[in-house]
Amino acid sequence: MSATAVPRRALVTGGSGELGGAICHALAAGGYHVIVHANQSLPRAEAVVAAIRAAGGNAQATAFDVTDAEVAHAALDGLLSGGPIHAVINNAGIHDDGPMAGMSAEQWHRVIDVSLHGFFNVTQPLLLPMARVRFGRIVSVSSVAAQLGNRGQTNYAAAKAALHGASKSLAREMASRGITVNVVAPGVITGRMIGEDFPPERIREIVPAQRAGTPEEVAALVAFLCSEAAGYINGQVIGVNGGMG
């Protein structure tokens, strides 16, 4: 994009969180106008927008429930009225951990609803508009748990692993339209998500790099995959995990 061109627009679901916020900042630094999504907490999304604008970038905030197809479609219709959305980063996801033997149906469905059904509800309405402009970048944020498994996370691993198959299939469907579809699978990343489950000694034990990654390291890959330079990278699942697998 030239300096005078209208910026391409990117929607980041879960953009108000730690990893989502880092992704929003990286995309804005790469020239995108970033739509920062939150589920309910619009003020958190607006805080990310304010920080991006303070750094000289372009951004706006939105809030809607990705698990509600009708609500998501209405929100996307509103966003599309302002022009095409050229990139979508499916970063929204939740944990509700527990061994499967004691897991409730609600725990199972809630996690899958956000990560997997949210992926469909947000991505599907954007495909034809992307195809019309012959450019699209779809990146879904998965997890090393989807690749290796993790005790207490059958629901989370199932939801994220499903994104791998969906993304590989969608990449084949949309590649001729200039649209790429990839998955980024982070490992142990600093922030609230790792909590007390990963003290430093545990991280040194399970991560060959012997440290946790940072949200910025994941965001850098996402931003690259959304760039012009990444146009021939398609249908891939790329780990950001310090060598875990």
Score class of each variant (00 low, 15 high):
N182H: 13
E106W: 13
G118A: 09
V240E: 06
I35Y: 02
A162P: 00
L116I: 00
V207T: 08
M193Q: 10
S143E: 08
I233G: 12
T62H: 00
V222Q: 05
V111L: 10
P7Q: 12
C24A: 07
N241R: 04
R151P: 00
V139E: 00
A158K: 08
G57A: 12
A209E: 13
A5T: 04
L126H: 03
S169P: 04
N150K: 14
R9T: 14
R110C: 02
R9V: 14
V188Q: 07
V183W: 03
V222R: 07
A87M: 09
A92H: 06
A54W: 10
V111A: 09
V144F: 02
A161C: 09
H109Y: 13
G152D: 13
K160Y: 04
G30V: 10
G178V: 11
V122N: 10
T180M: 12
V133A: 12
Q40S: 12
D97Q: 05
A54E: 15
R9Y: 11
L19F: 05
L126F: 01
L127Q: 03
V122P: 08
P84N: 09
T13E: 11
L170I: 15
T62K: 01
R53N: 06
A105H: 10
G83N: 01
T62F: 00
Y156Q: 08
Q40A: 14
V114P: 06
V111T: 14
V222D: 01
D96A: 15
A63C: 10
I35M: 03
N150A: 05
Q60T: 08
L163C: 09
A61I: 14
N91F: 03
V207N: 07
N150G: 00
A212M: 07
L116W: 01
T62P: 04
E228H: 08
Q60W: 00
I238D: 02
M100E: 07
P208E: 09
S104F: 03
R132Q: 15
I206G: 13
S176E: 13
F198T: 01
G15Y: 01
N91W: 11
I233A: 10
M103G: 12
F224W: 08
V181E: 01
S142P: 02
I189E: 10
G245R: 12
R132C: 06
I89Y: 04
V122C: 08
S167T: 15
V207W: 03
S167Y: 15
